[in-house]
């Protein structure tokens, strides 16, 4: 790693101020950032550690609303988001136990790894990403592989979910990395359905509109029969070709609907 300083602000305001400095970068749980720094893929002057900010921790549940602090770890979401079982289950299957004790929802979303689990839940649940500056609807948040519409130095303070009537996440594990080879999150809200896919597209997480329409009319695995995606623009690597991933999206979508 190159040299850098670390600051540990105790409030969102202090963190935002620290992030205004030249070369400053936010540090969430560090489960992606620290390995990246070790590879010298990044050279921040200062890391601003968000882990000590109490107001970004924890889960508030009220009726059908669930608000999760941006600094809340995957383990805490797995244990504390019982009001939204599909989300708790997703969080409890990210990485491994030690990673879940450090990695945070805000860090995962800001990183927007094309194979990460949380982006599928946030896009699939039409969640609201709250920052120190504004609120961003999930549909306007993800902006391609490893890219979001967050501005320089903007901090994800909370993520707000509305618990759907039915939901499930089906993940085809890539057992070495423990990321999703393909993961599909399905959620039913009244008369509409969201289907969000991670791990598949070179553009990162996306909504499968055709499946959403079919499931809105009939929320059953059979409704997805005959629907397919093209392998063009899908991630193709040693773990699977684009065509394989495109096929897997259909399979995992059916499994998610069956489990919901």
């Amino acid at each position: 790693m190159y040299e850098f300083d670390i600051e540990r602000p105790a409030s969102i305001v202090a963190a935002a101020k620290a992030l205004n400095a030249e070369g400053a970068q936010a540090l969430g749980g560090g489960q992606t950032l620290i390995p990246s720094l070790k590879q010298r893929l990044d050279q921040p002057a200062t890391l601003v550690c968000l882990g000590g900010i109490a107001e970004m921790q924890g889960i508030n549940a009220s009726g059908n609303d669930l608000s999760i602090g941006g600094g809340t770890t995957h383990a805490d979401v797995a244990a504390g988001a019982g009001a939204y079982p599909a989300l708790a289950a997703l969080a409890g299957n990210i990485g491994d136990p030690a990673v879940r004790n450090r990695g945070t929802i805000g860090g995962s979303l800001a990183n927007n790894d094309p194979s990460a689990d949380y982006p599928a839940a946030v896009l699939g649940s039409e969640a609201i990403v709250r920052t120190n500056l504004r609120e961003i609807a999930a549909d306007n948040f993800f902006d391609g592989m490893f890219a979001t519409t967050l501005r320089e130095g903007e901090i994800i303070t909370r993520v707000d979910f509305v618990v759907p009537e039915k939901a499930a996440y089906a993940k085809f594990d890539q057992p070495a990395s423990r990321f999703a080879l393909v993961g599909v999150f399905v959620a039913q809200y009244g008369d509409h359905v969201r289907v969000a896919v991670t791990g598949a597209s070179e553009g990162g997480v996306f909504r499968w509109a055709e499946a959403e329409a079919a499931l809105a009319a009939d929320f059953s695995p059979a409704a997805l029969e005959g629907l397919s995606l093209s392998g063009d623009g899908m991630i193709s690597d040693l773990h699977g070709s684009g065509d394989y991933r495109a096929h897997l999206v259909g399979v995992m979508a059916k499994r998610a609907v069956a489990a919901a």
Partner: peptide, 29 residues
């Protein structure tokens, strides 16, 4: 491994298992 894959470096921090190769000493202050 020093890449947070292998778990040989697991310790407990405030009662939780973490990979100590993927956490800064300053964060454990």
């Amino acid at each position: 491994c020093d890449t947070s894959q292998c778990g040989a470096c697991v310790v407990h921090v405030n009662g939780r298992d973490v990979k100590s190769c993927t956490m800064f000493a300053v964060e454990a202050d």
